[in-house]
Design a protein around this nucleic acid. Sequence first.
DNA 1: TTATGTGCAAAATCTTTGCACATTA
DNA 2: TAATGTGCAAAGATTTTGCACATAA
Lengths: 144, 144
Amino acid sequence: MVSKISMIEDKLKSMGYKLTSQRRLVIEIFEESPYHFTAQEIFDRVKEKSSNINFSTIYRNLELLCKLNIICKLNISSGISHFELMDTEHHHHHLICLNCGDMEKVDICPYNQLNKSKLEELGFVPTEHKFEIYGYCKNCSPNK
Amino acid sequence: MVSKISMIEDKLKSMGYKLTSQRRLVIEIFEESPYHFTAQEIFDRVKEKSSNINFSTIYRNLELLCKLNIICKLNISSGISHFELMDTEHHHHHLICLNCGDMEKVDICPYNQLNKSKLEELGFVPTEHKFEIYGYCKNCSPNK
DNA sequence: TTATGTGCAAAATCTTTGCACATTA
DNA sequence: TAATGTGCAAAGATTTTGCACATAA
């Protein structure tokens, strides 16, 4: 019945979490697209698949997937949380258009070149980072 | 009566905005501390000064100050907006502790060293950026 | 069977808005 | 006085939670 058991589903199972149809639907949406979604967008996409799901189920599953480092939460100016697949192979950040709100992935990252001496000095142990560039995308650029 | 008219207040005046007591209280809080505040924290601090203020007034003023680039909005994982004085002299970013939630300012910035060719390629015109390092602060570090 | 997950409804949080009244310039 | 700002109350939006029922393993 299930043609493709994804690595994510295997991971959940192996950690003792159940594979419900709702949970599978949420995971499918992330797997189908390398993009990021709000809880609302996930809700809508599940509906499109003519399946039903409850908002609390979505939030509870997003929380679980975040906790397991399968997805991560992006916090952008709008105040609405966006979630996207944790992509350990293609580390990236985002360009965010101040006009149209579009968020484009870019595979640039300043972290490795960063001088970490300040962190050591402060006794701060880094585990992750976020880098966002705000501005105007190709379509919204004023000098276009 | 007003002993120190700040540059911010001058700026507002010169742009045709009125200097109300509520607005002055909000600005004072930012001027008194190089730290960041939530709307709630600003509300509490104004109350401490035994002055009254309404939440909508706070939000409306924060919006205005953001628009005028006097303060800026920080978006962190919690989902609550934090605001801090725009500090053009001391550009900085934040270290955010995943345990206690503390946000520490650091004067490191990877932006200038960043190779911008990718942005040009994409036709993206950058205007600002955010860089946050998550991890564990000195007090919460596991290897302490 | 039993631990885990879901749906539902309600609440909690944070933020925004309309409108009448108040205040600054 | 005229434009701008505030308070109030209500609504919006997003997210969380308690509890009974449902389901995967």
